[in-house]
Amino acid sequence: MKADLARRLRRIEGQVRGLQKMVEEDRYCVDILVQIAAVKSALHQVGLSILESHTRGCVAEALQQRDREQEKVDELIQVLRQFTKL
């Protein structure tokens, strides 16, 4: 999973560099906005992947072991609130 996330983040980094170049070259605004939307979507997908991993790993383990389960649930709710904020 870590290698996949790193690959995806490098791709997003390339997209952001492409955006910088588009701005420097005074490219058409709509084209830039489309690329911004693509970067936002890609970052959102990375975030969802990490959130899923956290839930299936850390949170599920805490619930099974009854170890700090309320703390982990509260943490998950806080992360969901932050992640879904626009």
Rank of each mutant, 00 (worst) to 15 (best):
M1W: 03
K2V: 09
A3R: 13
D4G: 02
D4I: 14
L5C: 04
L5R: 13
L9P: 05
E13D: 08
G14N: 01
G14C: 00
Q15L: 06
R17H: 13
R17A: 07
L19K: 02
Q20S: 09
K21N: 07
M22D: 05
M22L: 05
C29K: 08
D31W: 05
A37Q: 14
K40Q: 14
K40P: 02
S41M: 08
S41C: 02
S41K: 12
S41F: 01
A42R: 06
A42P: 05
H44A: 11
Q45L: 11
S49V: 03
I50N: 01
L51A: 14
T55P: 00
T55E: 03
R56M: 08
V59L: 13
A60S: 10
E61V: 09
A62M: 01
A62I: 03
Q65N: 15
R68Q: 15
Q70Y: 03
E71A: 14
K72P: 00
V73T: 03
V73M: 10
D74S: 10
I77E: 12
I77F: 11
Q78E: 15
L80K: 04
L80T: 11
R81S: 06
Q82N: 11
Q82I: 06
Q82S: 11
F83G: 07
F83A: 12
F83W: 10
F83K: 04
T84Q: 06
T84Y: 08
T84E: 06
L86Y: 04
